[in-house]
Structures are given as C-alpha cells and as structure tokens.
Simulated scan of single mutants.
Amino acid sequence: MPEQDVCQVTCVDQPKVDRVKSELSQQNTLEVAKVFKALADETRIKIAYSLYIEEELCVCDVGNIVGATTAAVSHHLRLLNKQGIAKYRKEGKLVYYSLIDDHVKQLIKLAFEHQKEVTAHG
C-alpha cells in the first residue's frame, strides 16, 4: 500500500514550481541553513534565548544561566558570532554579547512561541 503522505503524481502546478525554483535560485539557502544549524544546538538556543530576554549579557553570566563553563560558552558564542547571530563588545576584562539585530530577535521569539503552541495543542 502506498504512503498516505506522498503524492501519486509528479507535478500539479508547474508555474508555481518554476516560480519558487526561480526565487530559491536567487537566495543564499546555504547561509540561511547555517543559521538554523547554529541554533539547532540546545546550549546555543538557550544562549540565544537568554540574550533575547536580557538584551546583553557577560560571557560569565551566560555560563551561569546555561550551566556551562566560561570556555564552553565562549566557544558557543564565537560560533553564534561567526554565523551572524550574535555580536560582542569588550569592556576591560569583560566581554558582553547581544543578538545582532531585530531579525534574529524575532526568529528566537517566534521559535519559542511556536513551541509553546505546539506543546499546548499536543
């Protein structure tokens, strides 16, 4: 018996397929995927959510929040910075991180709101 969630035909609306393929060809999907990959780690999403809640946090405070060493948190924050998710500023011996812009803040906010809805309806 065929799967219920698989189409039995090869294409229904070729103009839609062509439009979306054209749009996708103009986007840098690899870089977008890297953002989601960076956030797919539980510690990094905790870090990102912490930065969403508090706007800016010192590396040592982030470590206390997520229950990780400063070295581990620094590694995760550097990755978030490299992927364009977080930025930092140095103040003497302290390094403060924040989310890079409102797009990233909205992404984090929406992901957590979505999860609350899924949990409430599940």
Rank of each mutant, 00 (worst) to 15 (best):
Lys46Trp: 05
Leu51Ser: 05
His103Pro: 02
Lys105Arg: 15
Asp18Gly: 00
Cys11Arg: 03
Glu54Pro: 00
Tyr52Met: 01
Gly92Lys: 10
Phe36Gly: 10
Gly84Ala: 02
Ile108Met: 07
Ala33His: 07
Val17Asn: 07
Glu91Cys: 00
Lys21Leu: 12
Ala33Gly: 08
Arg89Asn: 12
Cys60Gln: 11
Ile53Met: 08
Val9Thr: 09
Leu39Thr: 07
Lys109Tyr: 04
Val20Ala: 12
His103Arg: 11
Glu55Asn: 13
Val104Lys: 05
Val66Arg: 02
Glu42Gln: 13
Lys46Leu: 12
His114Glu: 15
Thr43Lys: 04
Lys16Pro: 02
Gln83Lys: 14
Lys21Thr: 08
Ile108Tyr: 06
Cys11Glu: 14
Asn64Gln: 12
Ala72Ser: 13
Arg19Ile: 00
Gln106Leu: 12
Ile65Phe: 12
Ala111Thr: 11
Ile45Thr: 10
Arg44His: 05
Glu54Asp: 10
Gly63Lys: 01
Gln14Phe: 06
Val32Leu: 11
Val66His: 03
Tyr96Asn: 12
Thr70Glu: 15
Gln106Tyr: 01
Ser74Leu: 00
Leu30Ala: 13
Gly84Val: 07
Leu79Ile: 02
Gly84His: 06
Glu31Tyr: 00
Lys37Ser: 09
Cys7Arg: 13
Phe36Pro: 11
Ala72Phe: 01
Val73Leu: 10
Val95Lys: 15
Ser22Met: 05
Leu110Asp: 15
Leu51Arg: 01
Glu56Lys: 12
Phe36His: 07
Leu39His: 10
Gln14Cys: 02
Lys82Val: 04
Lys34Pro: 13
Lys109Arg: 10
Ile85Met: 09
Lys46Thr: 07
Val20Thr: 13
Glu54His: 12
Glu56Phe: 03
Leu110Ile: 02
Val9Met: 06
Lys46Ile: 06
Ala40Arg: 05
Phe36Ile: 02
Cys7Ile: 01
Leu57Arg: 04
Leu107Cys: 05
Asp101Trp: 02
Tyr52Val: 00
Tyr96Pro: 07
Leu51Thr: 01
Asn81Glu: 15
Val95Thr: 14
Lys93Tyr: 11
Ile108Thr: 08
Val35Ile: 15
Ala111Glu: 08
Lys90Met: 03
Lys87Val: 08
Val62Leu: 14
Glu56Trp: 03
Val12Ser: 09
Lys37Phe: 11
Gly63Glu: 02
Lys37Cys: 05
Val73Gly: 04
Ile45Phe: 12
Val59Lys: 08
Leu57Tyr: 02
Lys21Met: 09
Ile45Asn: 09
Glu55Gly: 03
Thr69Lys: 00
Asp102Tyr: 07
Leu30Cys: 04
Glu23Ser: 06
Asp13Lys: 01
Tyr97Lys: 03
Leu30Tyr: 12
Tyr88Lys: 10
Lys37Arg: 09
Leu24Ala: 12
Pro15Val: 02
His114Lys: 14
Glu42Pro: 10
Lys109Ser: 04
Ile100Val: 08
Leu110Glu: 15
Val32His: 06
Val20Asp: 14
Leu30Phe: 13
Asp18Leu: 02
Tyr96Phe: 15
Asn64Ala: 10
Val95Glu: 15
Thr70Asp: 14
Asn81Cys: 07
